[in-house]
Design a binder for these strands. Sequence first.
RNA 1: GCGGGCGUGGUGAAACGGCUCUCAUGCUAGCCUUCCAAGCUGGAGUUGCGGGUUCGAUUCCCGCCGCCCGCACCA
Length: 445
Amino acid sequence: MADVKLEDIVSLCKRRGFVFQASEIYGGLAGFYDYGPLGVELVNNLKAEWWKAMVREHDNIFGVDTAIIQNPKLWEASGHVAGFTDPLVEDTVTHKRYRADHLADTDSNNIEELTKLLKDKKSPDGNPLGPVRTFNMMMKTYIGPVEESESTAYLRPETAGSIFTNYENVRETMRAKLPFGIAQVGKAFRNEISPRDFIFRVRELEQMEMQYFIKPSDQDKTYEDWRDFAYKFLTERLGIDEQNLQWHEHDENERAHYAKAAHDIYFKFPQGFKELWGTHNRTDFDLGNHQRFSGQNLEYFDEETREKFIPYVIESSVGVGRMLMAVLTNAYVEEEINGETRIVLKLKPELAPYRVAVSPLLKNKPELVKKAREVYDQLKQKFGNVMFDDNGNIGKRYRRQDEIGTPYCVTIDFDTLEDDTVTVRNRDTTEQERVKINSLRNELV
RNA sequence: GCGGGCGUGGUGAAACGGCUCUCAUGCUAGCCUUCCAAGCUGGAGUUGCGGGUUCGAUUCCCGCCGCCCGCACCA
């Protein structure tokens, strides 16, 4: 089928209650989005699936949920205060912005030093440069009611930081031995210069991250394993087509300050192949820095070899919003049915906002409605996410469910009253099957 | 942040310096309907925000906000 357009996804999200612009009635706020009733269901399903695969199915991976605001020293140790506070200069003619340290060809972040170095330099376009200014990508806030510099804190720019600071706590309380992992799902905040592409690049995002602590000698094998895990999760658990996925290895220039190696899985978003899930070898960068900055001993003692060392870390990191967008894009299909176009979300049944919709064939026959309500109540107990719909005609209801990805529609007709059977209509094939009410629980999988 | 384009019911579109801003679809109420958006009769719902020009602005001008594209950025 033709490539999915971004506007199709945006329109569907709005129309059907997946994603709304934040503060929409006030004109919105760039880089912020809200999940609607269906979006939150789908997102919760995605997170639950990840948590299950990552935490529940691994004996040696433990979950945490840490504070969004941490001691600011954490971000000094992590390199974010330095790495996020980019010194920028502006071309006074074209108003293009450049990294001052790049133009000056230095590692320094010092404003005075950079100003000195760039004093007689021109921009790449040959124009004079404006003053060097810092641009901090971390969102600042204040602790306490008074805005004093002493009370400055940051909203976390990633969830990984506070996993590292809990490394020792988790190791100790869970009596964990290497290798083991710590996983977290949570919000992070970044002052993106220009948020773009709907929910792809945003200023408030939710991450699903896992940091796997290992012996340095295991780094290559473990790195490979977690790359496999990510790929399998996307294809097998989320049903994403392989043709929509691509591997991308970071070269030296692309890598984050903490990473020795980085592989991303790219997904074919409406705006092209873009980063979805990263696997990084962070080495002992983080724990090493935290040991140095905090003065706390974070070494691991290996009973077998009687050695002490700082564990290496392999990170697996994926954004919830991007995963949602990928799943929607992957599932979005427009197809011909009886000469008309229908939009259908071919979501895996476990992920769909509603597992099943229940309808009486006709609305103006009380005995059908009553029976349909009974079936609805039963299924509701089993699945929880069940919708009742008796508005309009039956075809209209089917199409409505198609568009929100409900895999099954159960219809109660006059035969139901005689023999307790219903029709189960399949979203993808549109075919119907006659099924006993008692066996419905097992059919709708 | 720079440059360009755009902003009209929920969605997708049309029109206009003035007359009740139009259409489709969706939503909704009633009727009808024995399986794929049928039909009939009703209903609610729109010019992003602020200012200016004007007798009068959704239309023209300015600012802001937002969205999309390109550049830069993406730890």
